[in-house]
Design a protein around this nucleic acid. Structure first.
Length: 922
RNA sequence: GGGCGGAUAGCUCAGUUGGAAGAGCGCUGCCCUUACAAGGCAGAGGUCACAGGUUCGAUCCCUGUUCCGCCUACCA
């Protein structure tokens, strides 16, 4: 029979798309609640529907695919559920940018047409990332692809919102929230990124109303907010100021006076001047202080964070100043106010000051605390069980280090602001009766807005919502039938928080839900631990009564080779698709897996991927080698009857199976990869294939049939072992070599087999390797070309080892390219011989021709020096009474043995040195 | 401010019941030896951040210091 031949180098492109479509067509990735086996399920962290695959996705998805393919091969009933996220603000921003380029805006389109437009954009770009995921080889059940805005998932969102509202866990209230003046929406606390900046600390004098010659000096980083001050606070126990409590100060630049209050929470006596201005409408601390002292709130910025003329007038700001700064941004207004204060000698000093500012995580605009009515989830009652679930181990977080992080955040969690003033998303199911709430619908046109900009619309605090699954027909209070729906939509994370059960059909009780919930593992990055993971746990426990997943595996962030965060603006992004095109998908996947060490970010450089491309090629060529020599009979023999190389490689393979499986169970993708790499390259290719060449190349060799069988068996098993990591090349090779079954995807994963263990063969191999390496070293020292056949002697101090050398004779000769002569050193020639020694093993290379022995002598001398040092160290330890008295006996024995061995080696080395010097004539 | 993680070969990183320092890449030398030059063979290279402590013995355990990351926080 003739065996198929492979190309000389592996060409990933020729292989990848072909196999992926085959796998899809045959439905290998399709899950069913009726499949046999213990369920194993993963829901994918849904990427942004209009995004494209970046290297962070590639890591996240590769790890999930490894787990899923591994479990599928183990016979589990696997489901990997894919999907995408509507990413409210981000997607809306993208479409708005497109509109802007066309000279339009979302306001000019109107809500309905705008949303249509976003759906269109989703239709055109939504498949991009899905196709890229397929290129990466992801074995998702694509028939179950979900999208957070799907009808079913939207129904789940509605259901959850209404039930939470009915349970009193959702409320609407006017609060100070984080507001992005560019996106024009509220953000939750965690959507704000903090950044340290060098700011200034301004000290401003506020004269006392009763005695303007005395002034309280307050310190602030935002002088412009003084216009909205409604009090000054001092510490009630501060002797410098507490006598002023109850008096009033004139608020400079306004016609107002404001009270001096005592507040021990807000005021830190050590900081600044010890007196604090209170601006309840523009600062979170001040808001709370305002609550404590029943202070009015005077906002002075509008929703675009511009100074607002009406508001300035309401705040009693001097008219001249008001007209001067109205409509300005904060950064433009600040110097003007600073100048006026300076002119009036109220600006006491300005110092440099380190501070943090918050930025919108989507657009990086500085966020403003902004007073507005919003929807909130009362979170404590939901957080409590979610803390429990992690504490009692129903959910494992891996690596464990993040547990405290999670618990700390959960214990100190704040109510979740879920309303967003955007259009793309799940609109809040709340309606307001127009009769009962008349006067509570406010419109506002931004200052300086273009004519196309429509009014900014708000439903004021105090309006009474009717929350329902569908629009109400009659008002339960007045019977009216005209309603206005709340214009806000929900935070995208509200819908992704339901992902593990909404995607399985909830609120219907589907077979899928029964079978695959709770899911087995969640694989995600640290950056969305709070955004997403925590919310899923809370909502899963609330609505399913059980955790959404058992294990949470948190992987690292992928950075560039310098450790910088990848970003488009820095231009240091590694495009996974480009890399896959250049080096092959398997190479990228294996690279990412091999670098996924817990608790450490991945610094990715292209050279690494290139290295694993080479690894793929190595595997490819091992397969080529096997195919080349496969002609001829093959015999399945009991392990004990196989040749030494066969017993050895089977033992090593078995060990590798054990290690890879155990490491995967521990989510140590890095160690699993390195075990595979080490085995395939440095044991299978470097040694095994070399060892068996004589048996394969001689058609009459007695070991031939058994060896060919072992060669195929081990290669086939190795391909299955490697398949979850490198799905494409393993399938291609597996299909080419003798195999049973239609695809490697659905073959059983190798299981460890104790019968394969051959400690005797492994021990023998260690001696073989040591001997061959020593001979090769001698070869290099003597400058013998690799091809030259050389005669050499071998011997060992240990008689049983010496006997093994005898048995290994032909392997030694073959691997060292020469003829091995096992013989006692007493019969070795006393001249023209280079003797090398290590750990009782001696080899002697015949010196012939005109060779420079200097290199050899240098090596011997250096080895002697090193060993001297080691002997000294061991002697020191063994001479130490305390060591001998307290160290365990086996350690002492080990030290003594090593010392004896070193002494023996030294004797031989000394004689070898003498011989060399004699030959050199020195 | 608080918390967490890291500091090991030129680079990127492994290394748990404390008992002779590892890998990959890079580097040097020799080889196109019919599986593979995307390769083979042989090498060089480390007081395991610093200072103490515990111990017969510390890269590993404890304390402190320095540097670098990340998370978190209302010091105006």
């Amino acid at each position: 029979m003739s065996t198929p031949q492979l190309e000389k180098t592996y060409d990933p492109k020729a292989v990848e798309s072909r196999w992926y479509s085959t796998w899809s067509e045959r439905g290998y990735f399709r899950a069913s609640a009726t499949h046999p086996g213990l369920p194993y399920s993963i829901v994918i962290p849904p990427p942004n529907v209009t995004g494209s695959l970046h290297v962070g996705h590639a890591l996240n998805h590769s790890l999930q695919d490894i787990l899923i393919r591994w479990r599928r091969m183990q016979g589990r009933n696997t489901l990997w559920l894919p999907g995408t996220d509507h990413a409210g603000i981000a997607t809306q921003n993208v479409v708005e940018k497109q509109l802007m380029a066309e000279g339009a805006s979302r306001e000019s389109l109107g809500r309905e047409r705008f949303i249509e437009r976003v759906w269109q954009w989703k239709a055109t770009s939504g498949n991009t990332i899905v196709n890229q995921q397929k290129q990466l080889g992801e074995s998702c059940d694509w028939d179950r692809l979900r999208f957070t805005m799907d009808e079913g998932l939207s129904k789940a969102v509605l259901e959850v919102f209404v039930r939470l509202y009915e349970d009193g866990l959702i409320y609407r209230g006017e609060r100070l929230i984080n507001w992005c003046p560019r996106c024009l929406t509220a953000l939750s606390d965690i959507e704000v990124e903090h950044e340290d900046i060098k700011g200034k600390l301004y000290s401003i004098a506020y004269p006392l109303e009763q005695d303007p010659s005395i002034a309280l000096t307050v310190a602030t980083t935002r002088p412009e907010t003084m216009l909205g001050d409604t009090a000054v606070a001092v510490h009630p126990e501060d002797p410098r100021y507490n006598r002023f409590i109850g008096q009033r100060v004139r608020l400079p630049l306004t016609n107002r006076t404001i009270p001096i209050v005592g507040d021990s929470i807000l005021v830190d006596r050590e900081f600044g001047t010890g007196a604090v201005k209170i601006t309840p409408a523009h600062d979170f601390n001040d808001f709370e202080a305002g609550e404590r002292h029943r202070l009015p709130r005077l906002p002075i910025f509008d929703h675009q964070a511009l100074l607002d003329l009406d508001a300035l007038n309401t705040a009693g700001v001097e008219p001249e100043l008001s007209t001067n700064i109205a409509g300005l941004t904060i950064s433009k207004a600040r110097p003007k106010i600073e100048q006026v204060l300076k002119d009036r000698q109220l600006l006491v000093k300005v110092e440099d000051h380190k501070m943090a500012i918050g930025k919108c995580y989507r657009c990086k605009t500085v966020v403003e605390p902004y007073l507005s009515p919003q929807w909130f989830v009362k979170i404590k009652p939901l957080a409590e069980p979610a803390i429990q679930a992690v504490e009692d181990g129903r959910i494992r977080i891996i690596p464990e280090g993040w547990v405290n992080n999670y618990l700390g955040w959960m214990r100190d969690i704040k109510d979740w602001c879920i309303s967003r003033q955007i259009w793309w998303g799940h609109q809040i199911p709340a309606w307001y009766c127009e009769t009962c709430n008349s006067g509570l619908f406010a419109k506002k046109v931004p200052i300086g807005a273009s004519l196309t900009a429509h009014a900014f619309f708000t439903i004021l605090q105090g309006a009474t919502p009717i929350v329902a699954r569908s629009a109400p027909t009659n008002c339960p209070t007045c019977g009216g039938n005209k309603f206005l729906r709340d214009p806000d939509v929900l935070d995208t994370w509200f819908s992704s928080g339901l992902w593990p059960f909404s995607t399985l059909g909830w609120p219907e009780q589907t077979p899928e839900l029964k079978t695959y919930y709770p899911t087995s593992t969640l694989v995600t990055g640290l950056d969305i631990l709070f955004f997403w993971v925590a919310r899923m746990i809370m909502l899963g426990l609330k609505f399913m009564g059980d955790v959404p997943f058992r294990d949470v595996y948190i992987h690292a962030l992928v950075r560039d080779a310098e450790g910088q965060k990848m970003s488009k603006s820095k231009g240091n992004v590694i495009d996974p698709l480009h890399v896959m095109d250049q080096f092959g998908t398997d190479a990228l996947r294996f690279t990412l897996a091999s670098m996924a060490s817990p608790g450490r970010d991945i610094k990715l450089a292209e050279e690494r991927i290139e290295g694993y491309r080479n690894f793929a090629n190595k595997i490819w060529n091992a397969a080529r080698f096997a195919l080349m020599y496969l002609d001829g009979p093959r015999t399945e023999m009991p392990v004990a009857e196989r040749s030494f190389p066969d017993r050895w490689i089977l033992s090593r393979l078995n060990r590798t199976v054990e290690v890879v499986t155990a490491e995967l169970e521990a989510y140590r993708f890095d160690r699993a990869s390195s075990a595979l790499y080490q085995f395939i390259w440095h044991e299978y290719c470097d040694w095994y294939l070399e060892l068996i060449k004589p048996a394969l190349q001689d058609p009459a060799h007695p070991d031939g049939p058994g060896t060919r069988q072992t060669l195929v068996d081990t290669l086939e098993t190795t391909m299955r072992l490697l398949h979850p990591f490198m799905p494409f090349i393993t399938e291609e090779i597996w299909q080419t070599i003798p195999h049973r079954g239609e695809s490697i995807v659905i073959q059983p994963y190798p299981a460890p087999d104790n019968a394969g263990q051959a400690p005797e063969a492994e021990e023998r191999f260690a001696l073989l390797e040591q001997t061959v390496s020593l001979v090769r070293t001698g070869r290099v020292l003597l400058n013998y070309p690799p091809g030259q056949q050389i005669p050499f002697y071998v011997s060992h101090d240990d008689p049983s080892r010496h006997e093994q050398l005898r048995e290994l004779q032909r392997y030694l000769g073959h691997l060292s390219r020469g003829t091995a002569e096992p013989a006692a050193q007493t019969v070795w020639p006393s001249t023209n011989l280079l003797r090398l020694v290590t750990e009782g093993l001696s080899v002697g290379l015949v010196v012939s021709g005109d060779v420079d022995l200097k290199k050899a002598l240098d090596r011997i001398v250096k080895q002697q020096e090193e060993q001297e040092k080691e002997i000294g160290r061991l002697n020191g330890k063994l001479g130490n009474q305390e060591f001998v008295a307290k160290a365990p006996p086996e350690v002492i024995a080990d030290h003594q043995n090593r010392l004896r061995g070193l002494h023996n080696d030294q004797t031989i080395l000394a004689s070898s040195e003498r011989q060399l010097r004699a030959m050199l004539g020195t």
